[in-house]
Amino acid sequence: MAVETEGGGLSEYATRIGEPRIYLPIALAAAVLFVPFVAPGFYVHVLILTFITGTGAVGWNIIGGFGGQFSLGNAVFLGIGGYTTGILMADYGITPWVGIPIAVALAVVAAVVIGYPAFKTSGHYFALATIAVLEGMWFLSVYFSDLTGGSTGYSVTGDGGWLMLLFDSREPYFYLAYALFLGSIAVMIAIRYSRIGYYLLAIRENQDAAEAVGIDTAKYKLYGFVISAILTAVAGGLYAVYINFLYPDSMFSIDESILYALIVLIGGIGTIAGPIIGALLMVPLEEYTTAVLGGQYGALSYVGYGVVLILFIIYAPDGLVERLRFVGERIEDAAPTVSFGGDED
């Protein structure tokens, strides 16, 4: 697994701003801001979905990639975020500016309640335990239909504008979702180079050894889980105001849980760029497949996808980041290093 172990943190990134590998992504990130001005609306829509799903994948990467804890239940936090925000808004008229923080608080509580016992297990067992929670929540969200609308679904409505975050145009959502995605990436980088990050990596490599050197593994796994829950819950809240329609299959969705892990796996597990590249590839391709390709070749192309996925895992287990490293290096070589006078090297 490709993980830089030296240096780091956001401040470290700031001092290395003159290097191509730092300023090129920043330039690219800035360029994305102009997408709504030039791209057709459908692309903007797909990017909004990419950012929302990508935030979940970033969250998954913290606990699954850094910490090595293979959660397949992270959509629980998507559901908590979405339903809390949506219900508070439509039934109680509470703005998502308040609703999302409440949703986050609930997600934190849920992460602790789930994580505290679940982290007594590890490996496959942890994955299965999180599936159990998710499936249980799915049934409960159908059962308590007075609250959630059950399988008939729940419409998120309210007055338009910044207070309720309801807009008829897509641009505000684009910038909100993009800000969320960038923010979650910043959180991921900060975590990666913080004590929590180092401890999570140590736990991933060898939990017993980590414990032997005095790391409270249960505590740090829980920290990682809580952080991933927070990011996923915010994504759920934004999903609620953007899509405006919630139902158990899209909220407490095992598909979505697996997609988070799959995005990270395809991109490069435990890397910074992995969930970003994974999300930018997978979400648009999914949208393309359903919205453009349509049903006729559906079955056969999915057979093809399955075969490619299997081959990919067998022959390119480190993910696209590793495979495409040489491309990045070419570009870096071509781009000049800019000195601001403060370079440490």
Binding site: F70, G123, H124, A127, I258, A261, L262, L265, I269, G298, A299, L300, Y302, V303, Y305, G306, V307, L309, I310, I313, I314, P317
Partner: peptide
């Protein structure tokens, strides 16, 4: 290999089997 690889290889098999059956 890692658990990740094992899980997703079998997930890949699901796609193949399910959609082959559908086809």
């Amino acid at each position: 290999r890692s658990m990740f690889a094992q899980i997703f290889v079998t997930v890949g098999l699901i796609w193949v089997f399910e959609h082959l059956a559908l086809f």
